[in-house]
Simulated scan of single mutants.
Amino acid sequence: MVKVADRLQGQQQSPLRAMTIRCQELGAINLAQGLSQVPPPPALLAEGTRDFEHLGHSYSAPEGLPGFREAVADKLKRHSGLSVDPATQVVATVGATGALMATLTALLDAGDGVLLFEPFYSYHLAALRMLQLSPEPVRLTGPGFETTEAALRAAITDKTRAMILCTPNNPTGRRLTAGELAAVSAVAEEYDLLVITDEVYADIYHGVTPHLAPASVGDLGDRTVTIASLGKTFSIPGWRVGYACGPPELMSRIRLAADALVVCAPVPLQELGIRALRLGDDYYQELRQMYERKRRILADGFMAAGLTPNTPEGSYYLYVDCSPMPVATGTEAAELLLERSLVGTVAGEAFYLDQPDRPYVRVCFSLPDEVLTEAADRIGRAGLTHG
């Protein structure tokens, strides 16, 4: 039998994808995976259909089309207050996951420790394990999931070389505050740590306070690689167009890794991405209003069931404490939800290295209103808090 790579030992199918498959088999409503099932901007689709024949269909440079990188730099300036040179500080990637893989490959070595704020996005852990990096959890507890300098320092080991932040957070929807980022900056400076920020939900925030980019706080810009994508903002995750930006000396290495891994991001979709990135403020306001409406629809269903979902500050997820249910774990809660309501969720265990302190499930509300309404009705009628 052919031997497989040691790096895959312990790797299993994502629980998010596993629940998606089960929902397909059972005909259940899938709220588990963040599939972004709302339509992209109609004008973007119309332009793509009209112009696709005339777009570029060969390779771009590994760092991406100049126009795409300029559009990214312009958007970062307008929305996050970051000033980056599109020629030396931006690399187009195959989604944010591609940006993360290129960054980890370029800047860290096998065995290096990477701080993960728990609960974390499960694909961050998968990427670390794939590259034989050592995940080092910083346990945050609900309901606030605040980050403290003491918790950060307690998690540092002699192997620690980096940390991954996700703000707005997946799965909780929490956004890091200026005070928390100041603590991150202090610890990163003292221990000379690379900071990688996943900001794919930066444009989907709830409330009036805009997204706070970690690289804009203190001295973090000198050691931070910001990764993001077009998928969540424009409801085009299947296009797989993302980017990384950061200090030129880091980005030159990331460019080499991105080239070796995938050659370049899809060129015609980079060209259409330029148009998406140049949409005006009205688009973003309507996007946030849409997601606030969808959040309320699904939250009402959980409250009708006797559960209290969190109020996310960003992203399109609810993180639900299922303690009132007759369950001990999030895995049991997800099973009970699937059994009684035919609604698929993802157990909180998917976002932790060790057992969570409570039985959580995460649900996605990036679906059509009528689907969310049906899911909320099923959840509310399911008798979830009864034995």
Results as ranks from 00 to 15, higher is better:
V346A: 05
G144D: 13
A43P: 00
L176C: 05
V217F: 11
V72L: 05
A305C: 08
A183D: 13
V361R: 03
L372N: 05
S80N: 15
P312K: 09
K3N: 13
G330T: 10
A106E: 09
L82V: 12
A258C: 07
M163R: 03
A71D: 13
N169L: 06
T160P: 03
R174T: 11
G218K: 12
L8W: 14
T233M: 08
V2T: 14
F117I: 07
T226L: 15
L298D: 06
K159Q: 14
A305Y: 07
V4M: 08
H211G: 04
V320E: 02
A182P: 09
L76M: 13
L82I: 14
L384A: 03
A182W: 09
V200Y: 14
V184K: 03
G179A: 10
F365V: 03
L116S: 01
L181M: 12
V72A: 09
I254H: 11
L256W: 00
M1P: 02
V327E: 04
D158Q: 09
V263P: 01
D203V: 04
G142D: 06
T49G: 01
E335V: 07
G207R: 08
M325C: 05
D354Y: 08
G67T: 07
G113P: 02
D321Y: 01
R78A: 15
V2Y: 10
P42L: 01
A228V: 02
A376K: 00
S36R: 10
I274K: 05
G306A: 03
F145C: 05
S235A: 15
F365E: 05
E249A: 15
G144H: 13
A99S: 11
L128P: 02
P86A: 06
Q270F: 06
D112F: 01
K3G: 12
D6Q: 13
V327R: 04
V208P: 10
V217R: 09
G330M: 11
A182R: 15
E70D: 13
T233H: 07
Y360R: 00
Y283T: 11
F120K: 01
I227Q: 11
V84L: 12
A244T: 03
A127R: 02
A99Y: 06
G301E: 07
E53W: 02
G142E: 06
L115I: 08
Y360Q: 00
T308N: 10
G314D: 10
G48T: 02
G380N: 03
S83F: 08
E118L: 00
G113C: 00
L250F: 12
A186V: 09
